[in-house]
């Protein structure tokens, strides 16, 4: 890992691989997602991704702006997973939660970012546009470099699922042994649930994958 090549290690890896030979496995679910640009960089320890999802929270979205200006926090949840091409199981994953909120006491916007199980970091912005930009642009370590096989023939991409204000689903463990009409009601509510076509997971969900990339040998 050491040597003259160490200097060139920190460099952009974004590689557009248009060669048809590499687009073999399109059937896999993550690979069927639309593509977006992202920037990758790596150190000896971790692989970093820089990606912007501006359409997750736009200033033109009246309802979202109304909530934001009303002092209500807006939660942005990002799930990113690194897939080797053709594989359906991610080789690494990271969960990022961002919360944007107007602070009426200090007259600014608080952007609180939590990466994985780490402790939150807080940034403050006087302008709403800056706060939104900060909350929809991520620059995080998505994997440990040691988890990612290297080489030009080892193609990877990152799947990003971004949600705005995801709706918490409570699991009803307290149902217990319902009897009589209660149980019928329970059965009926499940029966009705089978006919509910759309169950929004969040106010807004954006799913995409990045362009393929590879990590060159040290």
């Amino acid at each position: 890992m050491t040597g003259p090549g160490a200097l060139g290690r920190r460099r952009m890896l974004g590689l557009a691989l248009a060669s048809p030979a590499l687009v073999v496995l399109l059937g896999a679910v993550p690979e069927a997602l639309p593509r977006r640009k992202a920037k990758f960089s790596y150190t000896s320890r971790e692989l970093k991704i820089r990606v912007a999802v501006p359409d997750l929270l736009r200033t033109t979205d009246k309802q979202a702006m109304k909530m934001l200006d009303g002092g209500y926090p807006t939660r942005l949840v990002y799930d990113m997973a690194v897939y080797a091409k053709g594989s359906r199981t991610p080789s690494a994953a990271v969960h990022v939660e961002v919360s944007v909120q107007w602070d009426p006491w200090n007259q600014d916007y608080i952007v609180q970012t939590t990466i994985g199980a780490g402790s939150p970091t807080v940034r403050r912005y006087a302008l709403r546009a800056d706060a939104i930009k900060a909350s929809t642009t991520l620059s995080v370590a998505v994997a440990k470099t040691s988890d990612i096989p290297r080489g030009e023939d080892q193609i990877h991409f990152v799947q990003v699922i971004a949600q705005r204000n995801p709706i918490e689903a409570k699991s009803s463990g307290a149902g217990g042994a319902a009897r009589g009409q209660d149980r019928d009601l329970e059965v009926f509510s499940r029966w009705v649930g089978m006919f509910v076509r759309t169950r929004p997971k969040a106010e807004k969900v954006i799913e995409f994958r990045t362009h393929p990339f590879y990590v060159p040998h040290g």
Partner: peptide, 17 residues
């Protein structure tokens, strides 16, 4: 709140329900 066949709860629009 609606339940699916497994009893898992999720939210759905009132109109939809």
């Amino acid at each position: 709140e609606v339940k699916d066949a497994g009893g898992e709860q999720s939210m759905a629009e009132r109109d939809e329900v």
